[in-house]
Amino acid sequence: MSAARTLTFSIFRYDPQTPGDKPKMVSYQLDETPGMTVFIALNRLREEQDSSLQFDFVCRAGICGSCAMVINGLPTLACRTLTSKFEHTTITLMPLPGFELIGDLSVNTGKFMREIAERLKLWLHPSSDDKDIHILEEPMAPEEAARLYELERCVECGVCVSACATKQMRETFVGAVGLMKIARFEFDCRDNRSADDFYHVIGNQDGVFGCMTLLGCQDNCPKDLPHMQQIAYLRRKMTHALAIS
């Protein structure tokens, strides 16, 4: 059996809360263990070498989306990235660009997601006469439920936002996460909003017509969501809404 590799983690360090602190890259060495993920490595570094290291995690299983960061140039989830997949022993970790930096590798994706949800009204809008909560919902066709579930898998990790150069250049652009969630409600038969209603929210330069199809969202989404197809669908749908309005 070959000897365990010694990995070098080059990590972005900066605490905006500390006066006078400057952004820098700091290197740490760690022996690789079988099945080690970047998330495990970061926890070991924090426990064994530097307790001030800041990064986020909750579920450790690719479900919560908290541990998203840029690993060797690719934005992805630390908990789903095995260190063994890297041929070289130096692993560079950067925080996701485009979000408010909390410190080191920790960014405030929650603030962005909440603002997007408020701005795009990302919740179910039932019909106005559907107010009796005691009435059982109409059953949904399994095909429709499966279609919704496919889009519902978004964990709001923020990878699509960081991977999108359009979003980086245009702060007000809603990004793939916003468009994906709109597509989710557009498919939902319980949502009473019309194409015209959605058009008023995303039928503009900050919405679907601002997307330049750079496909960073499609290529980096850790949940493999069909961003390219959904954005194209919304674009056609919004164009059609314009044509008939």
């Binding site: 603002e115 408020e118 701005r119 795009l120 009204k121 007000t172 809603v174 058009y199 008023h200 929210v201 995303i202 039928g203 503009n204 330069q205 900050d206 919405g207 017509f209 601002g210 674009r235 919004m238 164009t239 314009l242």
Partner: peptide, 20 residues
């Protein structure tokens, strides 16, 4: 405090036309 939809995000026909 929920924000009302800002005029910035209101739909603009010209965005769709320009894209097409």
């Amino acid at each position: 405090v929920p924000n009302p939809i800002s005029p910035r995000v209101l739909g603009h026909r010209r965005s769709a036309i320009a894209d097409q």
